[in-house]
Simulated scan of single mutants.
Amino acid sequence: MQAIYIIVHSMIGMGQVLYVRGFNEKLHDKLDDQSKKEGVSPASILEDAFEEWLKNKQEIPTKHYLVLYSDDNSLLNFVRKVNDLEDGDWFHVTCGPESHSGVKYLKKHGWYDATISPYIQGIKKPEKYSSEVFDHLGSVSADKQTCFIGFMTEDIAHRYSLQKASEIEKIYNTKRIGGVVFCPYDMRKLNNFNFIDIFKLFEEHDEIFVLKENEVYKLNLDKTNHAKLFL
């Protein structure tokens, strides 16, 4: 048998009733026990839980995506389509070397450039410089739902190594912004990388996508074992 809690409290002189359904007997007993331990009413615990849930729902989600491509047309098709998904509620940002075709396209279409000048001088110290860029990005995007396409980590992978780029991605994960972040990497520029390095890069992102011409493929990595290879 399911229990139904009815919480009644006063708000501006009016009675307000909140029905919470779906509690089974075990949860009912746990709630009663917890309320006795804390010396508060079950209604108070439920209200606190609801307020916390509502707060989490209202927070802007943070997504950090890896995008792999191997030709300029695939990348430009991707940034065009993202740009065309125009929504007034989104704050559009990019960063990276000014010579990059993706940066050029997005800036031409009004995207905010979070790159800190001088880029060439700053990127000589990638950890320090990227941390400053991420701080700047967090400042300009505060309380905004942001769409960010960044080419800085791709450039770091090209100039230094994929391992160094993964370290920079890890720094970003400590300074995440609200919204969706895309990190494109040109596979043609990743020289002398190994699977250990690329898996580290995968691990620093929430999801991985591969671009092929006009198509976007979601890459799923499922760990298995040798025995399952024969099933």
Rank of each mutant, 00 (worst) to 15 (best):
Y105P: 00
K26W: 06
S99H: 14
K37V: 11
K104L: 13
R21G: 15
D87H: 08
D72P: 01
E98W: 09
F50D: 03
R21W: 06
Y112T: 07
S74Y: 04
K107N: 09
I45C: 04
D84V: 00
Q58K: 15
F78A: 02
D72C: 02
N77G: 12
L66I: 00
D84Y: 10
L46S: 03
D72F: 00
R21S: 14
G102S: 02
L66R: 02
L31S: 06
Y69D: 04
D89V: 07
H28V: 06
L27Y: 10
I45N: 07
S117R: 08
G110C: 07
N83R: 07
L66H: 01
D72Q: 12
L54T: 06
D48R: 15
E86A: 12
Y69W: 08
I116T: 03
S117C: 01
F23Q: 10
H64K: 11
L106E: 00
C95M: 15
P97E: 07
L46C: 10
Q34V: 05
L46W: 00
Y105Q: 04
N73A: 09
K104A: 11
K30F: 09
T62G: 05
W53Y: 14
R80Q: 12
L75G: 08
H92V: 01
L68W: 08
G110V: 08
L106R: 05
H64V: 00
Y65E: 02
W111R: 04
S44I: 02
V93Y: 06
D89W: 03
T94F: 02
K30W: 04
S70V: 01
Y112F: 14
S41D: 11
K107T: 13
L46M: 14
D32E: 13
H100E: 10
E47G: 00
L76N: 11
D29S: 14
E86M: 01
V79M: 05
T94W: 12
L75W: 10
V82A: 11
N24T: 09
R21M: 14
D33W: 01
K107S: 04
T115V: 03
K36D: 11
W53E: 06
D113H: 12
G39H: 05
K108H: 07
N77D: 10
N56K: 15
S44N: 03
V93Q: 08
V40L: 07
A49L: 13
Y112G: 07
V103G: 04
Q16G: 06
Y105N: 07
E25L: 12
D32F: 00
D32V: 12
W111C: 01
K63I: 09
V67P: 04
G102W: 00
A49I: 09
V17F: 13
T94V: 15
W111F: 06
K55E: 14
S74R: 05
Y19P: 05
H109C: 05
L85M: 13
V17S: 03
K37M: 10
D48Q: 13
S41A: 13
K104P: 04
D33V: 13
K26C: 07
V82N: 01
S99M: 11
D113N: 15
T62S: 15
I45D: 03
H109L: 02
E86H: 12
A114L: 10
V79H: 05
L66Q: 08
L106Q: 05
S101L: 15
S117M: 05
A49M: 12
N83I: 01
W111D: 02
T94Y: 08
Y105F: 15
V67W: 01
V93K: 02
E98Q: 14
F91L: 14
